[in-house]
Write a protein that binds this DNA or RNA. Sequence first.
DNA 1: GCCGTTTTGACAATGGTTGTCAGTCTTGAT
DNA 2: ATCAAGACTGACAACCATTGTCAAAACGGC
Lengths: 137, 137
Amino acid sequence: MTVREQPAKEHRRTRQRAAVDEVLDQTEDFISAQELHALLRTRGAGVGLATVYRTLQTLADDGRVDVLRSDAGEAVYRRCVREEHHHHLVCRSCGATVEIAGPTVERWAKSIADQHGYSEVSHTLEIFGTCPRCAAS
Amino acid sequence: MTVREQPAKEHRRTRQRAAVDEVLDQTEDFISAQELHALLRTRGAGVGLATVYRTLQTLADDGRVDVLRSDAGEAVYRRCVREEHHHHLVCRSCGATVEIAGPTVERWAKSIADQHGYSEVSHTLEIFGTCPRCAAS
DNA sequence: GCCGTTTTGACAATGGTTGTCAGTCTTGAT
DNA sequence: ATCAAGACTGACAACCATTGTCAAAACGGC
Ligand SMILES: [Zn+2]
Ligand SMILES: [Zn+2]
Ligand SMILES: [Zn+2]
Ligand SMILES: [Zn+2]
């Protein structure tokens, strides 16, 4: 995850955004725009694909969802519990995600950047592995 | 960067691979397959786009180049000095890259994963900022 | 040089994401 | 409630990075 930035603008409440929001609230794992779109289809509450993309992008810009890229390079989104800056420990096979807060790394990253004179620092950090459940099977 | 894996197989020496290799050796910053391809064109040493992609993929698989994704989601490659696992501090505006080795984070990541019972752990971590030179202008 | 295998490259095909733009809906004001 | 201004939507086209195809060319070992 990249460190949070922007303020956050005002947006209109529409059926489509509510639908996307609801899915995000009910989904534990990171989900792609395509998956979200398909899911909405099956639920009857159809929302245009372009709209799903736009909505997710807006949410991401406002820092209301976290975005990262799957191995395939596809963008995946998640509504996290933690509002503040954090990272993720993700299961490679089932997607189970744990939110990670790490003052240690935050300091480390900052100090590294300082040492090299870099300013306006941000960073991305994700940990991948096989969760206990998947390891068991 | 993801932690290194694979062993490394044998490949044939071809003009095309040599050309790609040469560009990588002369390029400090991360470069995309498309850019590399265009560069080779201007140099006269034309190499098919598909070949550039395949070559970079192979190099990446063998751990001979590092790969990460640009903001636009495009894959970018770099021949790093360090052979061992490491990360990068990249200038957002000019691309200047510093290789970072961090036993601290490595341990931290591992311990986090352990705490949650995740196995076969790997991770990605990149730091972005504005380099001193760019900050000055 | 010869041959089996690998590699190449022009081109098609894929697939995620964004652009278009006319029609629709939300909102704030009257 | 009514209305106008402008934000939002959606079907579809357009983009564009990346991968698949497959016959022709290049490699390496003999
Ligand atoms: Zn799992
Ligand atoms: Zn962080
Ligand atoms: Zn710079
Ligand atoms: Zn590391």
